[in-house]
Each structure stands twice: as C-alpha cells, then as structure tokens.
Design a protein around this nucleic acid. Structure first.
Length: 475
RNA sequence: GUCCCGUUCGUCUAGUGGUUAGGACUCAGGAUUUUCAUUCCUGCAACAGGAGUUCAAUUCUCCUACGGGAUGCCA
C-alpha cells in the first residue's frame, strides 16, 4: 500500500498537552478519518533534559479523552514501531553516519563556549547561525579528535548559496535562501538526535504521507527537505497550520492564561467543546455551521479549507460554546462529569433523583461545569441570607406567607407544578400578598437568593419536607 | 538585525472581478419569564494603505505598513 495516507501526531512529552497540540492532533486525526488513512501517535522523547515524570501517560490520556483513536502508537503498537523515539536511538546514529559518508553532514567539535563567543561576534552580521568552523576539517583531524574522545556533535552540511522552493499545502509556494539557514545539529553530544533528524528518519520509516504541524516549523522545513534529498527519500506533503494566538496576537502561551488541556478540563470545559472549538480555529466549512461532534468533523473536514492566518483563542466564545454543550448533551453524562466538583466541596449528592434535578436546573445557567456547584449549593446547605435581604424575610407579611405555605404544603402528599402555581394564586387571594412581596420572600426562603428558579422548580428539587422545614425556620 | 509567513467587523470566520460583503461570539435594545438564567428577535460593527491591471477591484499583481514565526546540542 504505497499510496496509503498515513499521518502522525508527534508530540514531545513536556508535562501537559497544549491546546495548540490538541488542534494539531485533531487535524491529523480528522484527515486520516476523512480519507480512510492511518493516524499514528509517536512520542518524541529525545530531549533528556526535559524529561517529565508522568508526561507520557498524561499525553496518551488526553488524546484518548479527546476521542482521537490512533491506529498505531504506544500501548497498541503497530508494524512501524517502536513508537518512542528514545527506543530508536541506534537508528538515528546509523543514518547520521550515512550522511557523513556522503558529505551531507560533518562532525563538529566546537565547545559551548566557542559557540556563544561566535554568537556574540555574529551580532554584527545578518546571519546569526553557526560559522562553519568544523565544516572543512580533514579526515585525519577528525579521526584524531574522535580517537581522543573529544566531545562532538554531528551537523548538517547545507548548501552555502542558492535557494530552495517547496510547496506547502496551506501556504503553496515557499522559498528560502540557503545562506540564511544554519548547519543544524543532528546528533547531540549525548548521542541523542535532535528533532530534525529523528523526525525525518521516523516519518520516512513510518511511511508518513502528510506532515501536518504548526507553522513554527515552516522555517525549518528546508532542513528537513534537504535531509530527504540527501537520503534519496521521497518527502511527505507538508501542511503547516496557522498558529493559535493570545489576545495580543503573540503565540499562545502559558503566561497569558491557560493553555493546557487539563487546565481547561479542570475548570469545567468539556472535551467535546474543546475539540469543536479548536477545530474551528484555522479551519471552516463552506457553510455557517459551528457546532460539530467529532464524528461530524470527520465527515466535514477538508485539508484544503485550512486557513492561513493565525487565530486568537477567544475564551469568551469558548464559554458560549461550552454552555451550548452543557445544555444539549445527555443529562446523565453532564451529571456524571459534574460529580467531582460536588465531591470536592464535600457535598452529599447520594440522593440520585435530587441530584439529577439539580443538574437539570443548573445546566441551564452555567457555561462551565464547575459553576454548577455555585448555582446549586443552596439545595444542599443551610441558607445564608445576604444582609440586604434580611428585612424582606423578616417582614410581617413574609411571615404570614411562610406560615401559609408550611401549612398548605403539609396538607397534601404530593405536589405537581400546576398545583404549586395554584398555591401561589391562592396565597394572593387568601393572604392578600402579591407581586414582589410574595415572590421575593418565597424564593429567599427556599433558595437564599432573590434571583433564581420559580416555585415549582424549587419545591420540585427540595421536596416537600425540606421546603416546609425552610419555611418553618423563618416563621 | 536577517529570513519566512500572514492581514475581511473587537474576536472566530464565509464570500465575490460588478453583492445591501453573510454567519457566530461579545456588546446594546426588545420579547418571553413574578425575578435571574435560558430561548427568540432587532441593532452596532470589517475588506490595512498606496500604485498598477481592468469598463469594473475587497477579490489579480507589485510596493509599503503592521502583526506573527524562525533564527538552540528544545520540540
């Protein structure tokens, strides 16, 4: 199957999954689904200095939670493994040596000190990169240093002049002059490969057909293409996605708010929302539709309709969309995923029926799951009345209303919504209290706030007994 | 600094060589609701600037401006 579409999401495990990464993963996944190709997960753990405990598990969990089932990768394996780059190190070494043999790469013995000094000197010129000091060492010089175990790296030997033009699916024709591109390190002094080498080698070996990644990679694409050429490999199609931006239009970063998927989840955003929202940041169908399930996105997605310009991650719209999902998704699911917020507050929600009614009510008023608790805590706790409302519930007429309701409620076993509304009307007739003087005290007595649900909803959730109790307390 | 990429309402975007430039979020006003929230309706608001091509340019070309990315033995 030489023409099979194979795409990959290749994150490095740095501790959390950036929403930008989530989108990259999503687009890869969607493209694979759309064209019936394969979606591969590959872990790029080649930087020993950035190892973070538990990061890989976290990453895999996030991908699964989002619903991006991968065809090959960690845990499930596949025919192109291993899928951890740290388990493939010998491979990269071998390919690097092949490059050296073909004069496409060279050993470099420059020390960190030399490099930083060089950098200082470069400040004057237009080019900030490596000065090519070790480019032309004789094979004898090189051998001698190697024999003496002088620490070294392997660098790419790029053309000194001319230019490279390639076609990006999103950006079309892109041209770079070679003399602006650095002789990139391919193998670090610790023997591990850098992204550039590992990525190209693995993408080729795994027969990746399309590289779909963030725009920050566009400027290193010439290096990658040079490598494909040097190895005599056919390069994959390049697809560079527009960046996700902070409100000030810089690259979306932690400094200006949440960027980790898990942070959003903690705050009560649903995975469904995140996926839907992020899908629309850089891609849009021809129509006006905005709400999509993952399955629907799989059908609608098209690589051709990816946009070119960076997109600001607008929390306000995210909130709106999350509210849409909270209201429209299955009640059971919302109830279930909201549980943890109640348990965190030590609220006893063991009464399943009451809890379900609470969720049914509260989901209409929130944009994030964690806000559900604030909206409904008064159903589970002793009420605390705001000072400014105290005169209202202490008034003579309010007390008459409470007595009336406590008495009336207890006279009948079960109450439906209509009967409660009737009771409101009867209160007006029999006690003579109406309008604000009636509704405010009633809601306050049962809910503790002057704004909120109507009487049938309130009593429906609290139940007859609890309602009577709350009234009697204020008589 | 240099190289590369980008630019339609504040934000996400649709769209076209001739359109009243459409939708969504936000905001404002209204309707529904005893109130709040939800929901619905209405409204405000954009083609970065200049030159060229053309009968005609928001749309094509070039320049400028602005924004962003890259410039690591990070990915």
């Amino acid at each position: 199957m030489a023409n099979e579409i194979r795409v990959r999401f290749a994150p490095s495990p740095t501790g959390f999954v950036h929403v930008g990464s989530l989108r990259t993963a999503l687009y890869n996944y969607l493209y694979a689904k759309k064209v019936g190709g394969k979606f591969i997960l590959r872990i790029e753990d080649t930087d020993q200095n950035r190892f973070v405990e538990g990061a890989i598990e976290n990453l895999i969990n996030t991908i699964k939670m989002a619903g991006f089932d991968y065809d090959e990768g960690p845990e499930i394996g596949g025919n192109y493994g291993p899928y951890y780059q740290s388990e493939r190190t010998q491979l990269y070494q071998k390919y690097a040596e092949e490059l050296i043999a073909n004069d496409k790469a060279y050993y470099c013995f420059c020390t960190q000190e030399e490099l930083s000094k060089m950098k200082e000197e470069n400040k004057e010129s237009d080019f900030y990169g490596y000065n090519g000091k070790c480019r032309n060492l004789t094979s004898e010089e090189v051998q001698k240093k190697l024999d003496n175990n002088v620490p070294h790296v392997i660098r790419l030997k790029l053309p000194l002049d001319g230019e490279i033009t390639f076609y990006d699916v999103v950006r079309e024709k892109v041209t770079f002059p070679w003399n602006m591109i650095d002789d990139q390190v391919l193998i670090k002094s610790d023997g591990f490969p850098t992204y550039h080498l590992a990525n190209v080698v693995d993408d080729h070996l795994m027969e990746i057909s399309h590289v779909i990644r963030g725009e920050e990679w566009l400027s290193s694409t010439p290096k990658h293409l040079f490598l494909y050429e040097a190895f005599g490999w056919k390069p994959p199609k390049m697809v560079h996605l527009p960046l996700l931006l902070n409100p000030d239009r810089t690259k979306l970063s932690k400094r200006q708010g949440d960027v980790a998927v898990e942070d959003f989840i903690k705050k009560g955003y649903l995975p469904e929302t995140l996926v839907n929202f992020v899908a629309l940041l850089g891609w849009h169908a021809k129509n006006d539709r905005e709400i999509y399930t993952l399955k629907e996105l799989e059908k609608a997605f098209s690589i051709k309709r990816i946009t070119k310009a960076g997109a600001v991650f607008d929390i306000t719209k995210l909130d709106w969309m999350n509210g849409q999902y909270i209201r429209s998704l299955d009640l059971k699911y919302i109830a279930e995923t909201s549980k943890k917020y109640f348990l965190e507050m030590n609220i006893n929600i063991s009464d399943e029926k009451k809890y379900r009614n609470v969720i049914k009510f509260a989901r209409e008023r929130v944009s994030r799951l964690n806000q559900i608790v604030e909206e409904s805590i008064m159903f589970y706790q002793e009420l605390i009345f705001p000072d400014e409302d105290l005169p209202i519930i202490k008034s003579e007429s309010a007390k008459r209303v409470f007595s009336f309701w406590a008495k009336e409620l207890s006279m009948q076993e079960k109450w439906n919504d209509k009967e409660i509304n009737n009771l409101v009307n009867r209160t007006q007739q029999e006690i003579g209290v109406k309008g604000k003087d009636l509704y405010l005290p009633l809601r306050l007595a049962l809910y503790g706030k002057s704004h909120g649900p109507d009487m049938p909803t309130l009593i429906g959730i609290l139940g007859k007994e609890e309602s009577i109790k709350r009234f009697k307390k204020l008589i």
